[in-house]
Design a protein around this nucleic acid. Structure first.
Length: 554
RNA sequence: GCGCCCGUAGCUCAGCGGAUAGAGCAGCUGCCUUCUAAGCAGUUGGUCGCAGGUUCGAAUCCUGCCGGGCGCGCCA
């Protein structure tokens, strides 16, 4: 029995109790969940429904719990129901009912964990959105890992998701980048406000090599080539780095195309038609304060130039126009000032910000080197690139360690620790569990032992097996919750628990999976093969949601 | 000054109102003559920043304070 099935059973039971006692079923919640108590003495699952309903019905919780226990105890598969404390219901399942879960998981395979919780949602998920003036670096990497995991999780929860990278290629920064490249190619000093990292010289050399005689051409002409070609080179590098990191964007969106295609103009008209645009001091403003922003924002400067904010508005309208009903922005904490104005854009366009726009703010990654904070700067060239991180620890470890903590908490990474601690990364613990299972399955194959079709779930009666089954059963709810809350780290934390349950199971002498020596294989061995295949399935599915590989050998 | 986030074990961090607050790492003690020791078992370690409040119940929700990070342009 899955937790979802048990929850439905509990809800049906409480409905029966309500009807029998003449209580109003309208007081019942639409859904309920069962918890996994920390303390094993509190049963396999616990329901707090009696506690929650006591106030609404006026029936003392323990009394309600007693009636519910009586009724639930008759359900097939339920071994016992006890009332505890103020009105907890502690439920135990028959081993056979609990063990059936392994069959469910094995038969679902890669589909186990998916749900339709977010079915019908068409989501645009934007993250990284780095300026094309330097390599993807550590500051972006957290969002790359988290954003891509979120894309996978939302998809698993039933949503239709496109991931999108917005490239700020229209403004002054690209201009400065071009100037810096030209300077580097001619041996001139880096201009003020230019880019001085070592990669600048590399990109400049690449561009120069592709255009013989470029430096002999007039400065304005050469500059334009360095700017445009350099930008293209940089963008291609960013893409390649992210792809190597396992992060694929469905859409690479260029800010330039908004300006060139007239989308910005059109956005201004749309907003004006909605009545939130006004002119003052020679500039054109959007009255974002109508919708909670702390000040109005300029769309067109008094010199006639459209602001970055105007492009933001056009960009949002572009997303909506492309059919996304929910636009999710994953931004670093240094951009949290954007929340108000972005939401105001949606509102000014006549949308309901609550429904259509969602801004997730993640805290920044800070860096220590030798215990001292390191200031990262693209301009100064003191940055740690995604490529360097991948080279140091590999894609799996890097992705995992960035995705396993809540983006609400700032992450502190020690540069030495990243490389040195490649071994004490929890990712190994999880992947190792998967590799161990594969190893046992290989050994079973050599013995000619397979799980077969005659599965006897009731044989999985050992406490370690029971606990493992319960962990496996949690997976779909974990994925659904991670999707709803936009919190991929929940999947990682869950996998660490599951891996722990597996390691403990396999270390238990009474839980031999394969026959020893000349022992004859039994139904119990075969039942355990079902159990470990179910465990392997969940580990593999879960790691995949994080973009981390599940190796068959380590 | 205003706004957002954070404060939980020595360190890095989990814990969407539930029962005795957890994990990894670090430390200490054991366990490889059969399924991978990247593992397991045990042990040390906590005023959940502080003070109030809400309720059957608060690390979790509310208020105030303290400490830290980040942000508050006709910049991009």
């Amino acid at each position: 029995m899955t937790p979802a099935q048990l929850s439905a059973t509990v809800l049906a039971a409480v409905r029966d109790v309500f009807l029998a006692r003449g209580l109003d079923p309208a007081a019942l919640p639409a859904t309920t969940t069962v918890e996994r108590p920390r303390n094993p003495e509190h049963g396999d699952y616990a329901s707090t429904l009696a506690l929650q309903l006591a106030k609404r019905t006026g029936v003392p919780p323990r009394e309600l719990a007693a009636a519910l226990a009586e009724r639930l105890g008759q359900e097939p598969g339920v071994k016992s129901v006890e009332i505890a404390g103020p009105g907890f219901l502690n439920i135990r399942l028959d081993a056979a009912a609990a063990g059936e879960l392994a069959r469910v998981v094995v038969e679902a395979g890669t589909a186990y964990g998916r749900s339709d919780r977010l079915a019908g949602e068409r989501i645009n998920l934007e993250f990284v959105s780095a300026n094309p003036t330097g390599p993807v670096h550590l500051g972006h990497t957290r969002w790359a890992a988290v954003g891509d995991a979120l894309r996978r999780i939302l998809t698993a929860a039933g949503a239709r998701v496109d991931s999108e990278h917005y490239t700020n290629d229209a403004g002054l920064q690209v201009e400065r980048f071009g100037e810096s490249l030209y300077a580097a190619a001619t041996g001139a000093p880096t201009p003020a406000d230019g880019y001085g990292g070592a990669y600048v010289a590399d990109v400049a050399a690449t561009v120069a090599a592709a255009h013989p005689g470029l430096l002999e051409r007039p400065a304005a002409e050469a500059l334009a080539v360095f700017r445009d070609e350099g930008y293209a080179v940089m963008l291609a590098e960013m893409r390649a780095s992210l792809e190597r990191f396992g992060v694929h964007f469905d859409v690479w969106f260029s800010e330039r195309t908004l300006h060139a295609g007239g989308a910005v103009e059109q956005a201004l008209e749309t907003l004006r038609a909605q009545g939130h645009v006004y002119d003052a001091d020679g500039a054109v403003w959007l009255r974002t304060t109508d919708f909670g922003d702390d000040k109005d924002r300029v769309l067109v400067r008094s010199n006639g130039e459209k602001t970055y904010f105007a492009a933001d508005a056009a960009y949002y309208l572009s997303k909506r126009g492309r059919g996304y009903d929910r636009c999710i922005y994953l931004l670093g904490a240094d951009h949290h000032g954007y929340i108000g104005r972005l939401r105001a854009i949606a509102a000014c366009a006549g949308d309901d910000p609550q429904a259509h726009i969602e801004i997730l703010i993640g805290q920044l990654v800070s860096l220590l080197r030798g215990g001292e904070p390191v200031r990262l700067s693209k301009r100064a060239g003191t940055l740690i690139t995604l490529d360097e991180i991948v080279e140091a620890v590999g894609v799996d470890a890097a992705r995992y360690s960035l995705a396993r903590s809540s983006t609400d908490s700032p992450l502190t990474l020690d540069i030495e620790a990243i490389t040195r601690a490649a071994n004490d990364n929890p990712v190994h613990y999880v992947r190792y569990a998967h590799a161990r299972i594969c190893s046992v399955l290989r050994n079973a194959g050599e013995l000619g032992l397979y799980r077969g079709t005659d599965f006897r779930p009731g044989l999985l009666a050992h406490e370690r097996e029971n606990v493992l089954l319960k962990s496996i059963g949690e997976f779909p709810a974990v994925v659904a919750t991670a999707g709803e809350l936009r919190e991929p780290h929940r999947v990682a934390r869950y996998l660490e628990e599951l891996a722990g349950e597996y390691h403990r199971f396999q270390s238990t002498d009474e839980c031999r999976i394969l026959p020893r020596g000349d022992e004859a294989p039994t139904d119990l061995h075969r039942a355990r093969l079902w159990l470990i295949e179910a465990t392997r399935t969940v580990l593999a599915n879960g790691l995949d949601l994080l973009g981390v590989s599940a190796p068959e050998r380590m």
